[in-house]
Design a protein around this nucleic acid. Structure first.
Lengths: 338, 338
DNA sequence: TTGAAAGCGTTACCAA
DNA sequence: TTGGTAACGCTTTCAA
């Protein structure tokens, strides 16, 4: 039975081999209760010989706790989420938790099911890192599972959150551009339903620039548009309106647009200055030299874990919304006007 | 009872609310067996009203299958793993599997426990993406769980694997450098125990260059050395031996070294040509212009999932080692000599 | 210090 | 078509 293909040894196999009861095995292996040195010795040897690894499902079922935090990520290939993931993993392990990650593959439906998968695994806590899933879908589980939203400004009354202050960030970087003397600026904007965060930051950029008397040309950069098309629009505007700077809602889009502009013969920063947003390694790097707004990823990740663990330990703890300020990184892509 | 804090509704709660037995609920919700329309209707409503999400632990326990593939990643912040993650997630979902990811935080011990966590969750299959963990540690579970190693040339007889042919890759990029006419080249090498893959590719570079009569200066770039120190060595060698090119084992290290060289006043590619390895977005990009060897990440990820699912479906299927060729990407960082 | 037995939430097999 | 009941692998009383 214990040798059947695919079946792993159970506590009964260990007990039989050690010549003790399964209760004894359980006590020894989980270090609870009392047992003699001899029992311990025999159990440990038997377990090692069998390559026994306790079944977390069975354990979780009876204990009602999994010591696991589920992380839902929007896009496994985005560097922002990736960086967040690494930070959270580290912090969670310090606190005695394991992080398991799932992702939707971009669609809301997939994300809902990825979230449900985490819930069905009965993770002790949930950290949602996605600007895509509507708050209501997330909040549904909040009464039963400690839930925190990380990386997006979520003010839902049932959900704690930690995020970069997008408005402040957009404003800061817009100030940087304005201070460099640019008088006509292109801002790439993303529709609200594409990504809340990106929408918020571009709106802040536009508002601040206009507030400072800068002429703004707004170009649609919704996710469905290929960067090459966006770049073509930018090139045209630069030619016709004489815009001298371009602001992007993410470093990633900035990179794609720079690339496309390059193919059109428009060089950065010679012909046009460009700024990004996110500031995650490796794009935020002196040698590459993006001028961008760095999100406080380290703090966001760490505090998200602290918040969720806090709520696991004390489910009655108050909902909190923490807004963290980002920092402008000055690179080579933004030049003073003229 | 069903309202107790933290406790989620169970199948019994649904059954009670729907006025049927838990067996009926199980049948309806899992779509197996027969049931009347009325039963279905009542069960579905009750489940929806309660926000019921089946407990995957209980289900997995009795079914003996979780429909989950566990992915062990070395470094959640590395773009190579990140890219692999995204590809695998997509392919697995096409095949009806969910991917859960865990990572060590860099140390072998942590990785072992991260792997054990996956095993304890009784994932149906395991994809190990780490050049760190010794094959023996991984192979231990192979007899009981379908296991595939992705992204490293692992020829262990019990482990299937898919990986970039590191030797061929190192050779290809070395050929590219030699063909550009460089006669003295610095190669950054990493010790074998730091990372198998990086070791293999740098050795291949060195061998090929020497084979073509190129003078090679070998600089130690073990993980513990700060890139700034490595860069200082490089700067000195460039000055003293007149080396005109530098080959790095990863794009990431390449970036850090370029950055550090820049601070030392050594400009790339003006003063020295540089090549990398990995070729993952965003560094492999025309605008940034790294000359590098692109690993076939898309194929590696996809085939890793196909292999592991194949072994889940047919545990007797043969162990396979698939070596995939990478492609040189020509960027701006490599100039012809003189 | 030990082992027997009662669950944990599901599914699956059986009568009914 | 139904519902009762026996697992699944483990932890946790409770007696001994």
């Amino acid at each position: 039975m214990s040798g059947a293909r695919g079946s792993q040894p159970t506590i009964l196999d260990v007990a039989a081999r050690a010549g003790v009861s399964k209760s004894a095995v359980s006590r020894v292996l989980s270090g609870t209760g009392r047992f003699s040195d001899e029992t311990r010795e025999r159990v440990e040897r038997a377990a090692a010989e069998l390559g026994y690894v306790a079944n977390a499902m069975a354990r979780g079922l009876v204990r009602g706790r999994t010591h696991t935090i589920g992380m839902l990520v929007r896009d496994a290939s985005s560097m922002v989420y990736t960086a967040l993931h690494a930070v959270m993993e580290r912090r969670a392990s310090e606190l005695g938790y394991r992080v398991v990650t799932t992702t939707g593959v971009g669609r809301v439906e997939d994300e809902k099911s990825a979230l449900a998968a985490l819930v069905s695994m009965r993770v002790d806590g949930l950290v949602v890192c996605s600007g895509l899933l509507p708050a209501a879908e997330i909040a549904e589980f909040a009464p039963r599972i400690a839930t925190v939203v990380a990386g997006r400004p979520e003010l839902h009354p049932a959900l704690s959150s930690v995020y970069c202050d997008e408005t402040d960030g957009g404003t800061q970087i817009a100030d940087t551009v304005a201070a460099a003397g640019h008088e006509t600026v292109v801002v790439l904007t993303v529709p609200q339903d594409n990504a809340l965060t990106q929408y918020a930051r571009s709106q802040a950029m536009v508002a601040r620039l206009r507030g400072r008397g800068v002429a703004v040309v707004d170009i649609d950069a919704s996710f469905v548009r290929p960067p090459a098309d966006v770049a073509a629009d930018v090139a045209e505007v630069v030619r016709e309106s004489g815009a001298t700077a371009l602001m992007c809602p993410t470093d990633r889009l900035m990179l794609d647009v720079c690339d496309a502009l390059h193919r059109l013969g428009v060089e950065v920063p010679r012909d046009v200055s460009v700024t990004g947003f996110d500031g995650v390694y490796p794009l935020a790097n002196d040698w590459i030299g993006f001028t961008t707004l760095a999100q406080p990823i380290e703090r966001i990740g760490r505090e998200a874990i602290d918040l969720v663990v806090g709520r696991i330990d004390d489910p009655t703890s108050a909902v909190e919304h923490r807004s963290l300020r980002g920092t402008v990184i000055s690179g080579r892509t933004l030049l003073p006007r003229r």
